[in-house]
Amino acid sequence: MDKRKIEENIFKGLMIFSTFIIFGSIVFILVTIFLKGFPALSFDMITKTPKGGYYLGKEGGILNAILGSIVLGLGATLFAFLISVPIVFYLNLYLKRKSKLAFFIRFSLDVLWGIPSIVYGAFGFVLMVFFGFGASLLAGIITVGFLIIPIMARSMDEVLKMIPQELKEASYALGATKLETAVKVIFKQAMPGILTAVLLGFGRAIGDAAAVLFTAGFTDYLPYSLFKPVATLPLAIFFQLGTPFPEVQERGYASALILTIIILFINISARMLAKKFNKNIVK
């Protein structure tokens, strides 16, 4: 075999090995979490709130954190949605494809996407103190909302970019204004794609820990007020793993399994919706 072939085979081997590492790692992570989490999973965990001494190994569950994360995630998603929609519609209806402004908006969305969530957390914390309220569901919603705006807006933008120009023109030709076109035509056409973007944002919102650490606080109670602290699943996991008691740590693994399942579920639904959307647009 000549030298070229040997080099080719070495690098091909390395490539296969790397690909295996990347795809193996996801399997490894999921399997580890499942194997460790499943034995500790119990009905109590998802139906009860922590009773006194839960973090010392006593009775209870993490319903507070599950519900808290869902409520906070929904709130943040709604907040981000309300800000993202006008932006992406402005980008795709009122601006030309090659406009400078559109470039800058997309560019800053990409840059915002790169800002770490701990920085959003610190920002939310300062705002919260400035407006005079403490760690609360509302502060968490706004902070996490900011965090997911770039993700949501950028993926919605990708969807809206695919809407055929003819469709818009057909609507203008009927005398519709741009706003009416946006609401009646585009929104409807892009609905599955927009939902996918929303779900992706929701997944991120539920999974993030660093942004809620300062702002949402933590509590053993179920979420009941916008102005009271709220428990979140990632933090519950973090705290449970931080205790020195093996049985609490076990529950931490079980909580991690619950969070993983929720995120898997959200991701797979988003994926399926995206598929449906692609089918629609191709024809």
Binding site: I26, G203, G207, A209, I237, F238, A256, L259, T260, I263
Partner: peptide, 9 residues
């Protein structure tokens, strides 16, 4: 898309 906490665990 996996949560950072899960990576931590």
């Amino acid at each position: 898309g996996i949560s950072p906490v899960i990576y931590g665990v």
